[in-house]
């Protein structure tokens, strides 16, 4: 075992290690928020997917889209599932998880079209909230797989992870982080 001081020192030395995004052909270490601000190209999510994720994020937890929710999900889906940090790992869904997200986003838009006559990203805040309430309860007429309640839970968890699951997120809430080994990125800075 090592002393706690050693870990803190090691963490500080390795503190520049952020998520790796490819920007202008170069691998760059960025937080998801900065990846969004820099308009880093997506590798797995299509443009329409991103718009839906952003709209879901803003409805589930305002601020999560600017915190880089779509880039975070895209980054995690684009890597080795063994290294995934997505909550979905815990929820009985077999890796890889890309089809789960794509199917869920398709089902969200289909339900939105059926309920409100428009894609989810074009819904008013009230319309979006109404659909999410139905999804949370698992009662969306005509909903296709995955289960709406599970998809709601996963996206909500991702949004919470990006906003509050980081050292910066802890600080927003006044929670002391007290790390033994600092995570390599203060996401949300």
């Amino acid at each position: 075992m090592l002393a706690r001081r050693d870990f803190i020192v090691r963490g500080a030395v390795g503190g520049a290690c952020l998520l790796t995004f490819t920007l202008a052909g170069c691998e760059t270490r960025l937080t998801p928020a900065r990846a969004r601000a820099a308009e880093v190209p997506f590798r797995t999510l299509a443009a329409a997917d991103v718009a839906t994720v952003d709209a879901l994020g803003e409805t589930l937890l305002p601020g999560s889209s600017t915190a880089g929710l779509a880039h975070y999900i895209d980054h995690q889906l684009s890597g080795d599932p063994a290294d995934s940090m997505l909550m979905i790992k815990y929820l009985g869904v077999a890796a890889p998880f890309t089809e789960f997200y794509r199917s869920g986003l398709r089902a969200t838009n289909a339900a939105s079209q059926s309920l409100h006559g428009r894609p989810f990203a074009h819904c008013s805040p009230e319309q979006a909230a109404a659909l999410l309430s139905q999804m949370a309860g698992g009662h969306v007429e005509g909903w296709q797989s995955p289960p709406s309640g599970l998809f709601y839970f996963v996206l909500r968890s991702d949004a919470v992870d990006v906003v509050y699951g980081t050292k910066a997120g802890f600080e927003q809430l006044g929670v002391p982080y007290m790390a033994h080994i600092e995570p390599p990125s203060r996401w949300g800075e």
């Binding site: 305002p62 815990y90 909230a129 949370a136 709601y152 509050y164 997120g169 802890f170 929670v175």
Partner: peptide, 22 residues
Amino acid sequence: VKPNDLLGIATTRPDIFGAALH
């Protein structure tokens, strides 16, 4: 408890979303 994760504070009330979640 931590703010997030399967056993985190946010997950104890999965029904809450939006500004109410903050």
